[in-house]
């Protein structure tokens, strides 16, 4: 997908989302979110560690991106 196409798609999605704002009501109430707020539900509790592991993979694989986290040391000599 080209960057321009991606931007247009995102813009369209945002506009659709905004127009639907008034008709959608939150189906999970704030007082029902205690479990989701538990630290064990965090996508990535430790930034350095997550970045380090993702970077290990990225420097040894052809794939890259969309990890949410990545980076750190490389050493792919």
């Amino acid at each position: 997908m080209k960057p321009r196409m991606l931007k247009l798609s995102l813009l369209a999605a945002l506009m659709l989302s905004a127009s639907a704002c008034s008709s959608i009501k939150p189906w999970v109430k704030p007082y029902e979110r205690d479990r989701l707020a538990d630290p064990i539900m965090s996508w990535d509790r430790d930034a350095i560690s997550g970045a380090y592991l993702d970077h290990i993979y990225e420097s040894r694989e052809g794939s890259r991106g969309a990890t949410g986290t990545a980076g750190g040391g490389c050493g792919c000599n």
Partner: peptide, 12 residues
């Protein structure tokens, strides 16, 4: 080293 280190790290 491999490329694209910094951007990914700061994303994380």
């Amino acid at each position: 080293r491999c490329v694209r280190l910094c951007g990914l790290l700061i994303l994380a």
